[in-house]
Amino acid sequence: MQYNFYLSNEDKERIYHTDLVKYGVKYDKAAKVAKILASNKEEEQWTEEERKLVLEACKQWLDSYNRYKNLQEFFY
């Protein structure tokens, strides 16, 4: 089932930030990345610094998320 509802940029930013921090991204870095991701700018419009920051944070998030999932499988 698909729901259609509106999320403001602030709501999106809050969700991204919470999830990034939950999986180990530093608070300040997560805040910057969340702002970039929630901005609705196309990836092609990001600066090189923004691209690098998002890539680093997302890689860190993915590594931690996968570690969590593997541990979850082990214990359950």
Rank of each mutant, 00 (worst) to 15 (best):
Y76H: 13
V54N: 06
N9P: 02
A38P: 05
Q72T: 01
S39V: 07
Q60I: 05
E43C: 07
G24F: 12
E56K: 04
S8Q: 03
D28K: 14
C58G: 01
R67S: 13
F74S: 03
R67L: 11
E48K: 14
R14E: 14
Y76M: 10
K41C: 03
F74R: 05
K35L: 12
E42R: 13
A30S: 06
Y76T: 10
K29R: 10
V25N: 08
Y76A: 07
G24D: 10
L71I: 05
K52N: 07
R14P: 00
Q2S: 08
Q45E: 15
I15W: 04
S64Y: 00
S8W: 05
Y23F: 15
C58V: 13
A31E: 13
Y27E: 15
H17V: 04
A31Y: 10
Y23L: 12
R67I: 04
Y68H: 15
Q2G: 00
K59C: 04
G24Y: 11
W61K: 07
L55T: 14
N70W: 01
E10M: 06
A38M: 09
A31G: 12
I15L: 15
K52D: 10
Q60K: 14
H17Y: 11
V33Q: 07
C58H: 09
K35Y: 11
N66S: 03
E50P: 00
G24K: 08
D28G: 09
